[in-house]
Design a protein around this nucleic acid. Structure first.
Length: 555
RNA sequence: GCGCGUGUAGCUCAGUUGGAUAGAGCGAUGGCCUCCGGAGCCAUAGGUCGUGGGUUCGAGUCCCUCCACGCGCGCCA
């Protein structure tokens, strides 16, 4: 890749300048390299001279000129090196080197833009992790899209990543679920029932109860309430979990591991972890409860692990869970939580320290919520009242491609406003159609070319050299940006940048399409342009694939 | 009250460890189809980057004040 070539040149110049006594030694050169925003500033630029000047108090431009003196253009690679502005060194690549990316795309195929930037670091990403007591809501959809795209992007950037869904199938939520079904069941039979205070009011609970009545009639009516509730909870949460899995599947999101909280308890991992923390002197007893000294690791106060009634808290099992993750050998664990859990981050990180792993092995990404609107009016969403728009309903209305793309357009750490009426319009306001259209259009061109009998030989470098208009070169340069874009997305945990890349690439293609006819009388030019267009198609497909959005041949 | 997050064009939002003249889509206005898909392209208008200070060669980006909005602050999960 061109980046490495430029870094080489800069490193050489730095070494030469240091030897000549013109500048002090420099640690790392590669970080100072960036793509200028403006084309007239070249293909690559470094602010290294500015950074050096800052440390030494020298004049930035003088440092830049000293460095530039030690850099010679490389025929066929770098055509021009110049000092500009306050002290940037700009590099312009030779056109034939720029065009070389087309051959690279052709050679690497679907593996194009993958790199080893992540160094095969073992990473686990845990996301969605919804309680199996109700359907996924729209916010879950956002986190599913985000987590899944993040994993795809990190994989392509050379991380070894696993997807995990944590199933909270133990404790209060599941118990409430059972009690809610139980109450609806009794109501359906015309028996006396009081709906629990903290029950789930959603319509789906009634549906479940009705189904049980249909299948089993009054079979459970005379059981004690608690027993019936437990029975229903145990029988129904796996079904609910299955439907959650199916919804994720609809969005193209699959998990490598479904990890059960219940299993943690069953295997005694919670007990073991608590004992360990006590042995390490990180936990202590007070007021009849067991506390973790989280305040020693940056949390506001110590937190309860075991209540005075003997019941472990959710925090306790969560620590055991993260203990388990670390035992499984991950270098880094990324948790994606709803933003409403942000008060929980400090204590979980403190727990990582208390266990002796170090908080730096846990990264928490807070997925902000989705605010739903209908025709500009906010939709009140509450599990308490049961008034929610489910993810399935949204998928019914806008389809998985638009939903995923929409969710991925914004950074994860800001709230997302989603107007359902707007989203369901399927109008060009949703850029997913714009990008998909570019792909479909290319496929159409290639179909046309085939009808015309245009050959699809790999063009010679001389043919490819015919690609020299601004529209063609701009498009080619954009193709070369995918790999670094993927790396940035992975490092910043910011897959949303890829939607922007996709739109820019599509836009440049549309401009090219306007300016350049692909199928012409000129065989060499036709071959070259078909080669280019195929490269664009490949890159669009890879990009959309990373986002989890389909790349249709026609629309 | 304390903590976290967010304030960038009329609207929705991008903006690499601080870099060169702050971008895109939608909306608005005006143009472009004899010929590979007009779900497209081109042009124009639109900004004190919430406010006020600070750090420096340089701040949308870093630090502090204040304002607005969202979320959190349980022996809930």
């Amino acid at each position: 890749m061109s980046r490495e070539k430029i870094v080489e040149l800069i490193e050489g110049a730095v070494a030469a300048a240091v030897e000549a006594g013109e500048i002090p030694p420099v640690a790392d050169v590669s970080v100072a390299l960036e793509r200028p925003k403006r084309l007239e500033h070249g293909d690559w630029a470094t602010n290294l001279a500015l950074v050096l000047a800052k440390h030494t108090g020298a004049r930035p431009r003088q440092v830049a000129e000293a460095l530039a003196r030690h850099i010679e253009p490389v025929p066929g690679v770098v055509s021009c090196v110049e000092v500009a502005g306050p002290g940037f060194i700009n590099f312009r690549l030779a056109p034939e080197f720029v065009r070389g990316i087309l051959f690279e795309i052709d050679a690497r195929g679907d593996g194009f833009a993958s790199s080893d930037a992540g160094g095969s670091r073992r990473v686990q990403v845990e996301f969605v992790s919804a309680n199996p007591v109700g359907p996924l809501h729209v916010g879950h959809g956002r986190w599913a899209a985000y987590g899944d795209a993040l994993v795809r992007v990190m994989e392509r950037a050379g991380f070894d990543v696993q997807r995990e869904f944590y199933v909270n199938d133990y404790g209060t939520q599941v118990a409430n679920f059972g009690r809610s079904i139980s109450a609806r069941y009794m109501e359906a039979l015309g028996r006396e029932a009081t709906f629990p205070e903290s029950g789930y009011a959603g319509r789906y609970i009634v549906d479940i109860a009705d189904r049980i009545v249909e299948e089993h009639g009054e079979e459970y009516a005379d059981l004690p309430d608690e027993e019936r509730s437990r029975l229903f909870a145990d029988a129904e949460y796996p079904r609910m979990l299955e439907s959650i899995r199916a919804t994720c599947e609809r969005m193209g999101v699959g998990f490598d591991v479904w990890f059960s909280e219940r299993e943690l308890y069953r295997k005694g991992e919670v007990e073991r972890t608590l004992a360990e923390l006590e042995e390490r002197g990180e936990a202590y007893r007070s007021e009849g409860a067991l506390w973790l000294k989280t305040s020693e690791y940056g949390d506001e106060k110590d937190r309860v692990l075991v209540r005075s009634n003997g019941e472990p808290t959710y925090f306790a099992s969560d620590i055991a869970y993260h203990h388990d993750k670390m035992l499984r050998g991950f270098d880094l664990v990324i948790d994606i939580w709803g933003a409403d859990h942000h008060g929980y981050v400090a204590r979980m990180k403190a727990a990582m320290d208390a266990m002796g792993y170090g908080a730096e092995h846990l990264e928490v990404i807070l997925g902000h919520l989705v605010r739903l609107y209908r025709a500009g009016e906010p939709v009140v969403m509450s599990k308490r009242t049961g008034d929610i728009i489910t993810l399935d309903e949204l998928l019914d209305e806008v389809g998985p491609d638009a939903a995923r793309y929409f969710f991925l357009q914004r950074t994860s750490d800001s709230p997302l406003d989603l107007d359902i009426d707007l989203a369901r319009k399927e109008s060009p306001e949703n850029p997913v159609y714009y990008v998909q259209y570019a792909h479909a259009r290319i496929c159409s061109i290639l179909r046309f070319a085939a009808e015309q009998g245009a050959g699809d030989r790999v063009p010679s470098p001389r043919d490819v050299a015919l690609l020299d208009t601004a529209a063609e070169m701009d498009l080619i340069r954009k193709l070369a940006e995918l790999e670094e874009t993927v790396v940035i997305c992975a490092r910043q945990r910011a897959p949303h940048r890829l939607t922007k890349y996709a739109e820019e690439l599509a836009a440049l293609f549309h401009v090219f399409y306007r300016d350049c006819r692909v199928v012409t009388e000129d065989e060499g030019l036709t071959a070259a342009r078909m080669f280019l267009v195929k490269g664009v198609r490949r890159v669009l497909k890879i990009t959309l694939g990373l986002l989890g959005v389909s790349a249709p041949d026609s629309m």
